[in-house]
Design a binder for these strands. Structure first.
Length: 450
RNA sequence: GCCCCCAUAGUGCAGCGGCCCAGCACGCCGCCCUUUCACGGCGGUAACGCGGGUUCGAAUCCCGCUGGGGGUACCA
């Protein structure tokens, strides 16, 4: 979710500026290198239509596009850092720090080691990590963030950049990769804002030009905490499976933290690209609102052509009876009644399978003598309708209701319940029509004895 | 604890010193339309967190507070 949002902003920015959108997998941690973690990311981006110009699957002039394959570069950079005094070996384990009462940050203990002490530790065979050395006397880093504005940090720590097993850490990898790949704009989640100063220092130490930074505000869950897997909303693919349209998702995500200068909300992709600028991204975190997503999705569904809608439903719900689906779409029965594609199978279920009648509906509409009379009468009349078409069914039912002296609105309710099994369903006359004369009559008769 | 970011209705945004006793959208509540439910139409509800400044004038600038979030890892 969050990463899709950030990816979208990156993509929009690149497309608006005519730049290059690069997909690089940050898998310096073996844990995140697993395909089951990486594949969904690429699948999500593809689903959203966020095509990348360079990436692990398609290559590009600055490959490779997985950090795990760039180890050579990282090692070189570390060596240089060490040689030029911008980094140093550190033998402090977590336990050592705790013993010294260092709860956060680092006390630069190993930075002050003498040559002799270093040799000794080195010879002891105790593994050493490598820390970046914040330049002596440097007390502050100021970053001009394209979204957050001026960010001033005084808390500068000698962070570990290489594990004691020799493998590089994110901090080192991104920085050296961004330099090597000539990345001009780093647009990422605001959760990475605190790590920016050190990256700036690292870049400076390597004598490279700084990229522009833009930190996109985080998306929070309804509980206002950072969206995580635990919210179940993290996987963008679950939205696909529920039947949120990709164009809805893009439009919706774009509006989280950004707005069109026109204030319009239903926007085509072309317009979003044309209007998207970082200075219109605001810096406050936002909360994901499912209701608005649902509304927007319905708007997009209503705008779909019949064929398109039908195919998309079949795509995510292949078991939907195609004939019923086709009729229901052709008659425009379903479009305004669903919020996501996955609602459809349930909504039309009763049209191809006799439903158990909702007990609450039974109690409310079916038990009485009046209801029975209504059902029987209508069943009889319906049975003798010659031409089975909605108009005739409609007049048949309405005439009967009138003759029986029933309420125009409430009168047909028992019929509705008998046909659909519930109090809310697709329009009555079309439903009866689609069911066919025999089945419709049968359902009415069956409902007299519940 | 320390560091950083943020702060307009329930939610998402607009506003970037006077056009704002604050606009739009979702939601919610009425009414209309209607064979149910929806769709649609009309109307309504609801916010500049607090306190100080600056200014002729502040939602807009500054400071403090409060609140929320993020970071504080040999994760990314």
């Amino acid at each position: 979710m969050g990463s899709a949002h950030t990816a979208l902003f990156n993509w929009l920015f690149a497309r608006h500026e005519g730049g290059t959108f690069v997909l690089r997998i940050e898998d310096t941690d073996p844990e995140t290198a697993k395909p089951e973690l990486v594949d969904p990311i690429m699948e999500s981006l593809r689903w959203l239509g966020l095509n990348w110009d360079e990436g692990p699957d398609i290559g590009g002039p600055y490959g490779p596009y997985r950090d795990s394959e760039r180890r050579g570069l990282h090692d070189e950079v570390v060596e240089r850092l060490l040689r030029e005094g911008h980094a140093y070996r550190c033998w402090c384990a977590r336990a050592d720090l705790d013993a010294r009462g260092v709860s956060s940050g680092y006390d630069r203990h190993c930075r002050g080691l003498t040559e002799a002490q270093r040799e000794e530790l080195s010879a002891s065979g105790k593994p050493a990590a490598i820390r970046f050395a914040v330049p002596e006397g440097r007390t502050e880093v100021v970053v001009q963030d394209l979204i957050m504005g001026e960010v001033r940090t005084e808390d500068l720590q000698d962070r570990v950049i290489v594990r004691s097993d020799g493998s590089p850490l994110y901090m080192l990898a991104v920085t050296s990769d961004d330099i090597a790949m000539e990345i001009t704009h780093v647009i990422r989640g605001a959760d990475l804002l605190p790590s920016t100063p050190i990256q700036v220092l690292l870049t400076e130490a390597l004598g490279a030009p700084l990229p522009k930074f833009a930190h996109v505000p985080l998306i929070l869950g309804p509980d206002k905490a950072k969206l995580s897997k635990r919210h179940g909303a993290d996987g963008i693919l679950t939205f696909r499976d529920e039947g949120i349209l990709p164009e809805t998702m893009v439009n919706f995500l774009a509006l989280l933290g950004w707005s069109s200068p026109t204030q319009d909300e239903l926007l085509t992709l072309d317009r979003i690209i044309k209007e998207f600028t970082l200075d219109r991204v605001h810096s406050a975190p936002s909360i994901f609102d499912h209701q608005k997503l649902a509304w927007m999705n319905q708007e997009y569904i209503k705008a779909l052509s019949d064929d398109d809608l039908e195919n998309r439903i079949l795509d995510i719900a292949p078991d939907t009876p195609a004939d019923v689906l086709h009729s229901v779409i052709e008659l425009e029965l379903i479009q305004s009644r669903i919020t996501k594609l996955q609602d459809v199978p349930d909504a039309i279920q009763y049209l191809h399978q006799r439903p158990a009648i909702d007990p609450k509906a039974v109690e409310k509409w079916l038990g009485t003598e009046e209801a029975k009379t209504t059902l029987e009468t209508v069943a009889d009349r319906l049975e003798s309708v010659d031409q089975w078409k909605p108009d005739n069914i409609k007049s048949c039912v309405q005439d009967t209701i009138a003759e029986l002296g029933l309420h125009r609105r409430k009168g047909p309710k028992p019929i509705f319940v008998a046909i659909s099994g519930s109090e809310a369903a697709l329009p009555l006359f079309e439903s009866i029509w689609l069911l066919g004369q025999e089945e419709a009559v049968a359902r009415l008769r069956a409902a007299t004895s519940v």
